[in-house]
Design a protein around this nucleic acid. Sequence first.
RNA 1: GGAGGAAUGUCCGAGUGGUUAAAGGAGACGGACUGUAAAUCCGUUGCGCAAGCUACGUAGGUUCAAAUCCUACUUCCUCCA
Length: 370
Amino acid sequence: MTEFRYELMAKDGKARRGRIHTAHGPIETPAFMPVGTVGSVKGMKMEDVRAQGADCVLGNVYHLMLRPGADLVQKMGGLHKFMNWPGPILTDSGGFQVYSLNDIRNDDEDGVTFTSHIDGSKHRLTPEISTEIQYKLDATITMSFDECTEFPVTYERAKESLERTIRWEKRSREAFVKREGYGQFGIIQGAHYPDLRKASIDALVDIGFEGYAFGGWLFDETGSKETYNTTVETCVPWMPEEKPRYMMGVGYPSDLIYSVQQGIDMFDCVIPTRNGRKGQAFVHNGVVKIKQAQYKEDSAPLDPECDCYVCKTYTRAYLRHLYMSGEALAGMLLTEHNLHFYQRVMRLIRENIEAGTYDAFAKEWLAKVK
RNA sequence: GGAGGAAUGUCCGAGUGGUUAAAGGAGACGGACUGUAAAUCCGUUGCGCAAGCUACGUAGGUUCAAAUCCUACUUCCUCCA
């Protein structure tokens, strides 16, 4: 059996090239993990996701516990078999979903009671329940159950929430069933307050996890990246060197390139899939919003520099037509292109770290990509 | 041949005397989306930079005021012969 471990293979500045060994195969890092919330990367067949170069995908406790239920997934042989993804799966603990549904939640020291968005029924998540569900799903990487705060948030509230999160993460760790090749990550909170982030890291390292994730919310409604950038720049170096560093829920291609430069190893984000379904394609020099009139008679591929199936096969005019007609294929094709683009960027990131040319690469790509 | 009904902005469609440049929808154009309650959500959409102008089949009329009432005409639909 494979021991769950992080292998640091090369460094270029703060950027790290590594490999996470797991029971379900390796994850080459820096890695982008497509989001498959309900056991599906929306619009994609899993073999295609794999062929694009993804090593690991996400699943979600909140969604899967409500439908179809963790027991059913377990009965069907676990999430890997259920969704036809033999590789590593990372499951989010549900903390973020419960936070984003904050109008119908009710939390206490023990956990959170919330109302299902599907049928209004009452459900409960605690660190123990979330961890058990992830065990039943057979998650390769289990996330500890944390509390998210709104952003911006006051220092007092962030501190109070962090203290509870640390207690919850300790309980998550105690509930975690250790198995060869499986791991559990702790989630760092503390909003944009460096001393809280530091306290969070210290507490989590003290508990001891197989990896550490950067959680919370650092983007405001203006889309400014200043808070994100300064927080990441300050706090990521405090994360343990010998364990994987996972930035949760990020981001645009430029966010990935920047964050890798700051020492992050793993990402997940709905942007390439969701925005693909909504008609936005990421290309080598920015973004193509396929519904724009300028593409009506455009016989070029989405991205002339892309070698994906979609770019080799279809014109922008056709993709626009599909989108304007409301065809499901439009979202599928743009999703396929976007994920391909993201994996290509990750490949370039890894190659440039290995070659020791990361800064030049980052400078060039940050200037042209969204 | 007779009896009813209908004509509204790019399209569909509400409105039956005055907060009506005219509800709502579609379409078109633009924007947003970062640990997925999202093939979603949000703007704009007669002309003009503006004062303003032109608009509810056509032509007249009533009224302080009409898309809304009256008359004629045109076109379309349904039913009866």
